[in-house]
Amino acid sequence: MKARLWPIILIAAGFILSFAIPYFGLLDLYVQMILIYICINIILALSLNLINGYMGEFSVGHAGFMSAGAYISAIITVKCLSSASAAWLFPFAVIAGGVGAALLGLIVAIPSFRTRGDYLAIVTLAFNMIIKSVLENIDAVGGARGFLGMDKLTTLPVAFFWTLITIWVIRNFIYSNYGRGVLSIREDEIASDLMSVNTKQVKLLAFVISSFFAGVAGGLFAHLLQFINPRMFDIIKSTDILIMVYLGGIGSIAGSILGATVYTLLLEILRPLEIWRMVIMPLILIFLMLFRPRGIMGLKELTWFVPVLDRINSNRGVKGIRKWFS
């Protein structure tokens, strides 16, 4: 019973803190900003982990989906809504950004039926480049100069809330029937087909969910910085997300949370080193890959993220099929 209570207590404490910190000014603005960054990066890492970690595909254009979400939500709050209504309708703007990104994900998913591994990496890379050049050439959104005018709507509670939603959705998806289908594609796609898994449908769904949350992260990012330009969403950004996923450990929710947190913090802590930061950081990564090639968590999961019925030795046998899960 205790084990089930702790996550609820932590979530409640997190919520109270996320409201209290900005309200009472418990931490200075810079630290608050980093906390929000961590939240956004967790969303990004988790969503990419779905494709790269759980499904075993290799997508490297995640910043492309993020940019779609960022631009769509920013256009909605700046051009379609008044400043007062934007504050209230911000969640819907973020969702709209996510939906836009998800539609793009649907388009990118189709080549993934035909190509795998390295080839899919090239396809997603190309997608990332295309979306960046398209944004650079649309003058209505500022072209290469970028787009601004957003209010700072991404506050700590908002970011925390979206992070929880992401964790909840992805965790429930992974442990659903579809989620098992995603895992089986990673393990052996042919066998998965032969086991009656509709692999096309599963891939489509995984891509849509993943790009939706990348879009959400983009929307939050745009309303945190209050300024976006296409260069922010280039290959480097995609690589950042990849690093967080592999640093934390593929196929693990706890891993993505850890990876995003550690990476974001390290980048900030090493900031005084200025240019040397970009020497130290890759070195840390190289050593990590040498000594822990599967990342910090490496396919393992914190028990809290595993549904009770799926836990090993959970002893919650009831009747019928459940008895085998004890």
């Binding site: 895992l183 089986s184 990673r186 393990e187 052996d188 042919i190 066998a191 396919l299 090993i312 899960f325």
Partner: peptide, 9 residues
């Protein structure tokens, strides 16, 4: 075509 990282169940 066993899914090696998944449990038997």
């Amino acid at each position: 075509g066993i899914f090696g990282n998944l449990t038997v169940l």
